[in-house]
Simulated assay, not measured.
Amino acid sequence: MTNFILRRLGQSIILLLIMSVLVFAGMYVISDPVAVMAGEDATEADRQALARSFGLDQPLPIQYLTFLGKIVQGDFGTSFVYGRPVLALIFERLPATLEVVFLAILVGLAVGIPLGIYSGLNRKKAPTKVISFGTTVGYSIPNFWQALLFILVFAVWLRVLPASGRGPTTEIFGVGWSVFNAEGLRYVILPAANLAVALICMQTRLARSGTQEVMYQDYMMFARAKGIARSRLIGRHLLRNILIPIVTITGLELGTLIAFSTVTETVFSWPGIGKLLLDSIYRSDRPVVVAYMILATLMFVLINLVADIIYAILDPRIRYS
């Protein structure tokens, strides 16, 4: 296991370097940050002075090596637009994204797994057909359209939930959280529900297919023949054996939602890191975009590594040499 972890970390460093080169060069090709920051009324002298102040007058390889050297020292640079350290901007927005994503993940697991197990155990019953139809529809609706429907129904027609923004927060360990504030929680519900719908549909399908496969394994048929209680059979034998694919997909979805929940955050004007990324791309704020992508890649690598370790805990037959 130790060799596996070290090898995976070595691969991660190479992956991070490749990602940083691609994003850095891509932002250079897409737009000119000097033109965006200077505006239309700036003179050529103003543009040159602005470029010198940010080091943008240097050749692109020199700019990249300078940026890379600062990253090694823990300095991801300063935002062209906000004039603040990039890490401070990202970590300032991160709690807003984390509370929406984790709430969506919890709802997805809490609703999707029981529905999937029920569907797998009762394949021919009418509720199973309803669940199957609902997961197909829920997974097919575009995320942005679903968000607009939520706003229309719950904010415009029923007027029970706010349509946008982040409500009041309660500070815990120096960080403000909306989920721990009664009024702030109302603002979290719609963005979290918008993310949770696809997760519920996915977890339901995974749990259903896993249940149908596991229930006909020899050890499960033997356990049923021994007269083991149905609740124990499901909780101890079935659930543990269907969790491996669920852990895999949940890990990938967790990373994806944290890094790229841009549509939901934009529609609901949620001040998370996804909206920060979209605004930074629009404004050609290269330090923010590059640092964001590097951190997102690192997060994906770490989540996958944790998922691999959980595999070995859930199934002792899995070993890494």
Rank of each mutant, 00 (worst) to 15 (best):
Y64M: 08
P162T: 01
Y139Q: 15
K226H: 09
R240S: 10
E99W: 10
L314V: 14
L68R: 06
A49D: 14
R93C: 00
M37R: 14
L50T: 02
L239R: 04
I131K: 00
R186F: 10
E40N: 11
T135N: 09
Y28V: 09
A25V: 15
T78M: 11
G39R: 07
E265V: 09
G83Y: 07
L16H: 02
N143H: 13
P168G: 08
L190P: 07
G210M: 06
T66Q: 13
I18L: 14
R52S: 15
I62N: 01
L109G: 05
N194Q: 08
A96E: 03
W145S: 11
G184E: 02
I294L: 15
L238I: 12
G176Q: 00
R47C: 05
L276Y: 03
F268S: 12
L277I: 08
A229E: 13
F4K: 09
R123M: 02
L295N: 04
L109Y: 06
D315S: 03
R240I: 13
K70S: 15
L239V: 06
I318C: 05
P59E: 07
L239P: 03
P114N: 03
F54S: 04
V214F: 05
L161W: 10
L9F: 12
I273L: 13
I200Q: 04
Y118P: 02
L257V: 04
I249D: 07
T170K: 10
I258G: 00
L195T: 01
A155Y: 11
I14A: 11
I310K: 08
R123T: 09
V107S: 06
D285F: 06
L233T: 12
S53R: 15
L106K: 08
Q48H: 07
V188R: 01
L278R: 10
L239C: 03
N122I: 01
F300C: 05
V301K: 00
L305E: 14
T297F: 09
P114C: 04
G39M: 09
A163K: 09
A96G: 00
Y28C: 10
G167P: 02
V137S: 07
Q212A: 12
G83C: 07
D279Q: 11
I141N: 15
R224E: 15
F76Q: 06
S321G: 12
L15E: 01
V137I: 15
A45W: 00
G74N: 12
V306N: 05
F173D: 01
P142E: 14
T170V: 09
I200H: 04
S12H: 03
I30G: 05
V289M: 00
S79V: 01
L109P: 05
I242T: 02
L17D: 00
A225L: 11
F24Q: 08
G165V: 06
V306K: 05
V290H: 07
I310A: 15
F67M: 14
A207D: 04
S53T: 14
F268C: 10
P59S: 11
T2C: 01
G165L: 08
F144T: 12
V21S: 10
V247C: 03
F180H: 06
D57W: 05
W157Y: 13
V160D: 05
G184T: 07
G39S: 09
L305A: 13
A25P: 03
L15Q: 08
Q58N: 13
L199F: 11
D46M: 11
I273N: 09
Q203K: 13
E213D: 15
S140C: 11
